[in-house]
Structures are given as C-alpha cells and as structure tokens.
Design a binder for these strands. Structure first.
Lengths: 143, 143
DNA sequence: GTACATGCAAACTTTTTGCATTATT
DNA sequence: AATAATGCAAAAAGTTTGCATGTAC
C-alpha cells in the first residue's frame, strides 16, 4: 500500500522520506485533522519536523490523490486519507463534528447533476446545522 | 424594514450608526461577499471606515439574524442578507460559484434529521464539486 | 554533481483584541 | 456623565515563500 505511494513518487522523480511517511501516518491515524494537529502528532515522534514541511507534504499528498481536505466551517481545513468517504456534519452551536455515510448525498448529487450539471464531491465540504443535543436544548429554551 | 433593525438595536441598548447602515447596504447589494469586498464597497462612500468595524458589524448583524455567512470553500467566508435563501455550488477547478434553490436540500435535510438527529442549515455551507464546464473539459481530456 | 527535500526565518493574509478617542443619549 | 461605537495599532492564527543546508540518487 505504501509501496504504491513509493512508486507513484518515484515515477515523478520524487522520494519517500521519513517526514512524508510520518505525515501520512498522522493523517491516517487522526482521521480528520488540521495541519497544526498533524504537525503536533508528527512531532511526537520527530520533534524536528517543521510545520512548513507538513504543509508542503499535505499539498503533495493531495495532488497525488492520497489525501483530501475538507472545510469544516470556521478555521483551518482538515485533512483525511482518501478512504475516508463520509460527510461531516458540523454543529455551529457547539462545534461538534458528526459523520454520516457519503451515500446519503447520492440523491442530492443526482438532482444537482440534472438541474445544474454540477458533479458533487460530497466529501470536500462539511454540512452545517444543529446537532441533536443542541437542538434539544434549543427546544427546551423555547418552551 | 430598517426601522425594524433600528428597534432591535434599540431594545438592546445599541445604536444604528452610519457605518452599520453602510455595511448592511453593502451586504444587500453585493449578494454574497467577503468582509474585504464589503469593506471596499463601504469605503467607496465612506473611506474612513475601518475594516475592523466591518468585521464587528458583520458579527453583530449575524447575531441579530440579519445576515448569515457561508463558507465557499477556500479563503474568506461570504456574507449575505437573510433573504438570500439558496445553496452555493462551488467548482473546485475554476472557482465559479453557482446557486440553486435551497429547497433541493429538503430531502437530504429529512434524511439527516432522521438518521443523525441533525438539523441541517442548507445555506451556511457551500457544496463543492465540478461545474458543467469543467466536467466537460475533463471528459474530453480523458477521451 | 545534480535534483530533490528540509528547516529556518521572514513575509503575507485574514481576523481579533486592547485601548484611546469620539459620539450618542 | 455614562455607555456605546469607532479607528488605529498591534497581536494572533494560518499559510506561503526564499534561501541555505542537507540528502539521495
């Protein structure tokens, strides 16, 4: 699996370095994390790794299609490996992030394709709203 | 209409100032615009207005429910008045922003409510994908 | 030795904060 | 006079860039 990445890199005259391996590992482990979180994780093992390298590596891995980034709303984007095929639901009250299967957007994707010729990429952007907890406390407050 | 805002402000011991009026006007006129675009627009009329004031006013207007912001993906968020009830489709190849009716998300909203207890706010986040133009050129490239 | 990769520092962009000044009631 | 709003400058957060050094082929 990482052999594949190694070869992809090699085909382009690029190299598999410890830093790149560590960044990829961190992204895999963390699920979805900001560059800074990834950097912290990497630095637990290799403290000398600079955040610049993390940014550069994330860009590279994204170009290669190995990772993708998602905007969870405010603040920094989060990166995840390609297998991570789900949609993020961000509560804009408490900031909690829930995840649902990307399939749930299939219907919508069809509609958008038909109506606007738009090919939806469900994993790139998070959906925003109120999570069940905040919804509940909201209703109580109104009662 | 602005009388209503005036009164909402007054109820909270706040004031309607020229700056606030200008920011609101700019948001209305521009449809959806970044803080910087809004600031530029405001400064066409009142060059002394500081971008800090724009940020603070946008926050305030958002708290009051007069404007809402949307993350179009990369970069700065965009602000729009509350009436602006549509969903943004951002092409991540060419950056073009298309708009569709928010109703198209009704089905999805129902599913999310049922499956995850999540109350979707369709207008807050943009959907990402490929616009028809980029899709077409993509297919050609593959052909 | 050549091309790629890294680390470091500095620049840059976007947004927030502290504080003195001004305006409104 | 008291409170709110603004402007300015500085700080903070996130990201990018330039360059010298180091490393792999």
């Amino acid at each position: 699996m990482d052999t594949e990445l190694r070869q992809t890199l090699h085909r382009r005259g690029l190299r598999m370095t410890p830093q790149r391996q560590l960044v990829l590992d961190a992204v895999s482990e963390l699920g979805h994390a900001t560059p800074e979180e990834i950097c912290t994780k990497v630095q637990e093992i290799a403290p000398a790794v600079n955040i610049t390298t993390v940014y550069r590596t994330l860009d590279l891995l994204e170009q290669l299609g190995i990772v993708r980034h998602t905007h969870l709303g405010h603040g920094a984007p989060t990166y995840a490996t390609g297998e991570h095929e789900h949609v993020h639901l961000v509560c804009h009250r408490c900031g909690d992030v829930d995840e649902v299967d990307a399939d749930l957007l299939d219907g919508l994707a069809g509609v958008l394709a038909a109506k606007a010729g738009f090919v939806l990429d469900p994993t790139h952007v998070a959906l925003s709203g109120l999570c069940s907890r905040c919804e509940t406390s909201d209703s109580e407050a109104h009662a």
